[in-house]
Simulated assay, not measured.
Amino acid sequence: MKNDWSNLKKYAIQNEALLDSENSKRIVFIGDSITEFWKNYDIELFKTNFVNRGISGQTTKEILHRFTQDVLNLKPKIVVILAGVNDIAENFGAISNQNIFENIVSMIDMAKSSKIEVILCSILPANKFSWKPKITPAEKIIELNKMLKLYSEVNRITYVDYYNTMIDNEKGLNKKYSDDGVHPNNEGYKIMKPLVIEVISKLL
């Protein structure tokens, strides 16, 4: 991991295969475990134009580092960015919302420079992390989502609000949609799918 701290090798072989195939409607989903695990619940979704490039546990710093290889080089029509919860969990150490925000904006800038349409997703609600019990994430997630939404409005970036659809009355992820309070279960992904598919369809 010292030589590959952002896990570039994870999708290297799959990426090589895609480089040899043209697809004018390719959509790359990039993010952490919430993105990666999606394909376990909806195999069909990621069989055609949709490409899953989630890596469990990753922060925006790691995702940004592999953004060229796992997004830009694949020349997608659209990239769907869902990231930030592991930063708030301090998986890579303490980080401010401003720094998380700047990492995500850097991804957006890179995509726009390559003429790739961007779909920016809100962070899902969470009020606790089982692996970091001392952290209370609810308010920080709310604040960061406000920053992302405002940025999307000012810069005309398509925004998908998972947060307000999936929140419970304790500022956490509704138990109907998650078994651990962080990751969506099958019902959670069923809520997320039509929200993102709707905006993808409009962009295409």
Rank of each mutant, 00 (worst) to 15 (best):
D87N: 14
V118G: 05
N7Q: 09
I157W: 02
P137A: 03
V51M: 06
N7K: 14
A89Y: 00
K115H: 06
N127Y: 02
L82A: 13
D180G: 12
I88M: 07
N40D: 11
A126I: 09
E44K: 15
T35F: 05
I13T: 14
N15I: 12
N103S: 02
I191N: 08
S201W: 01
K171I: 02
N103L: 10
S152P: 07
D161R: 09
D161P: 07
S24A: 13
A126M: 01
Y177A: 14
V28G: 03
S201T: 14
E90Y: 08
I142K: 14
I13L: 14
N99C: 05
V85P: 01
S24H: 06
R53Y: 02
F37N: 13
F50D: 12
Q58F: 04
L204M: 14
S96G: 09
S33G: 14
K75R: 15
F50H: 15
A138P: 07
V118R: 01
G84V: 09
I104V: 11
V182Y: 00
D20V: 13
L19P: 00
F92C: 12
E62R: 11
L64C: 10
I108N: 03
S114L: 01
L124H: 04
P133R: 13
D179N: 15
N185R: 07
M110C: 07
F46G: 09
K47V: 04
G84P: 04
G188C: 08
T158N: 06
Y189T: 15
A126L: 09
N86D: 11
S130Y: 10
V51Y: 00
F29L: 12
N127A: 06
I13M: 11
T35L: 03
L173F: 09
I119L: 06
I95L: 02
Y177E: 06
D20K: 15
N145T: 05
M147I: 03
D20R: 13
M107N: 04
Y11E: 05
G31D: 02
E16Y: 08
V105S: 08
N7R: 13
I167C: 03
L8N: 12
F67K: 06
N91W: 02
L72F: 03
L204E: 14
K140W: 00
L18N: 02
I142W: 01
I197Y: 01
I119G: 06
K115Y: 03
L195C: 10
I142E: 04
R66I: 10
Q98F: 06
D32K: 08
G57I: 10
M147L: 15
S178Q: 09
E143A: 15
N97D: 12
E62V: 05
N97G: 12
V154M: 07
P76S: 04
N40R: 13
N23I: 05
R66C: 10
V160Y: 00
D32P: 12
E22K: 15
I123G: 06
L173H: 03
A12V: 13
L19A: 00
K149T: 08
L18Y: 05
N186I: 11
E187Y: 12
L124R: 06
I135T: 08
K9G: 08
Q58G: 05
K61G: 10
E198G: 04
W5V: 14
N3M: 08
Y177P: 11
I142F: 04
D168Q: 11
S122F: 01
I81G: 04
I43H: 11
F101M: 10
I30G: 03
C121S: 06
F46K: 13
S6N: 15
A94K: 14
